[in-house]
Amino acid sequence: MRAVTVPGVDDEWAIRFEHAAKTYAAGSSSRRDAPAAVDELTLDVRTGEVLVLVGPSGCGKSTTLRMVNRLVEPTGGRVLVEGRDVATLDVVELRRRIGYVIQNVGLFPHRTVAQNVATVPRLLGWDRTRTRARVAELLELVGLAPDRYARRYPHALSGGERQRVGVARALATDPPVLLMDEPFGAVDPVGRRRLQDEFARIQRELGTTVMLVTHDIDEAVRMADRVAVMSLGGHVEQLAAPLEIVAHPATPAVADLVGRGRVARLLALGRLSPDDVDAHGTAAPDAPVVHVGDELGEVLDTLASDGVTAVAVHHDGALVGTVTSTAVLAALRRLVAAPAPADVPGR
């Protein structure tokens, strides 16, 4: 995990919005008489976390994201990255230090994969040896073998492969902050899930601070350490861990966003705990095995798919008992019934 090194800066956060606002001029061609796109937003993004902004179209989430790298200039308040007000920084240097990934990637079509990934290192004057090594390292990191992909052009790649190249390019100079605006929206559902898993692995490995925008609540709860549910004007309806968002929506707007898929999302977020295990239970010798820490949805799916009443549960390589579908549903009820934490920001 990257540490903030600016003297006097609280290293608990990497990005801070202090009453940040964006208002478009009344009568402008694109936003005639529009209210504030973002109004007095105060929000911290913790160092090393994935914070996901989710909400309906037009709620200001992309505007909020783009104020960090000044693709959108704030009209009020401040945005700080690693303790420095972005308005005081040279905009070109700022953008070179912040990774940025968008839905349609924006690769240069006339450049090879390797040349695309090397864009920022070359702008910064890296020598060829260092650049070539970094490109190879990043292509390996995103699951694209350099010997197969480095010389290809974007038109020869699938949508998912182009998106991986976009992530590699954004990470080329090991930026302290990575901004992602609907990064997987143009990829098919199967490829999207695979990319989400791959990106989660990369983020855990690198510890990069990530701010991600999506309209998809499933993507938000799957990807995030914390979720900020936004409404019109960039107002934060609730800021909390994914499980808290789904189990305890703070406002009707959050409850509406979570919607009718709430149980399925809780099954994906909840984990099998030792309390769910019957230490004295027995299962058939050939019964399938699950593990403490598995998703409740995976455990329930195993029970349903194999048509058994109980499955064996292992923990640290040892058999610790069994679990039944009744126990899984009881665990789900506990998630819903548990009191909401009193100190969750944004409540």
Rank of each mutant, 00 (worst) to 15 (best):
P35W: 14
P35V: 11
A36G: 12
A36H: 13
V38M: 07
E40T: 06
L43I: 09
L43G: 09
L43T: 07
D44K: 14
D44Y: 14
D44G: 10
R46G: 12
T47H: 09
E49M: 13
E49V: 08
L53A: 02
V54S: 00
G55Y: 12
G55S: 06
S57Y: 01
G58R: 09
G58L: 08
G58I: 05
C59A: 11
K61Q: 02
K61L: 05
K61T: 00
S62D: 07
S62F: 05
T64W: 12
T64K: 10
T64Q: 10
L65R: 02
L65T: 03
L65M: 12
N69G: 09
R70N: 15
L71E: 07
V72C: 06
T75G: 11
G76D: 10
G77S: 12
R78H: 15
R78S: 15
R78T: 13
R78F: 13
G83Y: 06
R84D: 15
V86L: 03
V86W: 01
V86R: 00
A87C: 15
D90G: 04
R96N: 11
I98P: 00
I102T: 06
I102P: 00
I102D: 00
N104C: 04
N104Q: 14
N104L: 09
V105H: 02
V105R: 01
F108T: 06
H110A: 08
R111Q: 10
T112K: 02
T112H: 01
Q115C: 03
V117I: 06
V117M: 00
A118V: 02
V120T: 10
V120Y: 06
P121D: 06
P121M: 02
R122P: 05
L123I: 12
L123K: 03
L123H: 09
L124F: 14
W126D: 07
D127T: 15
R128H: 01
T129A: 11
R132M: 09
A133I: 04
R134K: 04
L141F: 14
L141R: 15
V142K: 02
G143A: 04
P146E: 12
Y149V: 01
R151I: 08
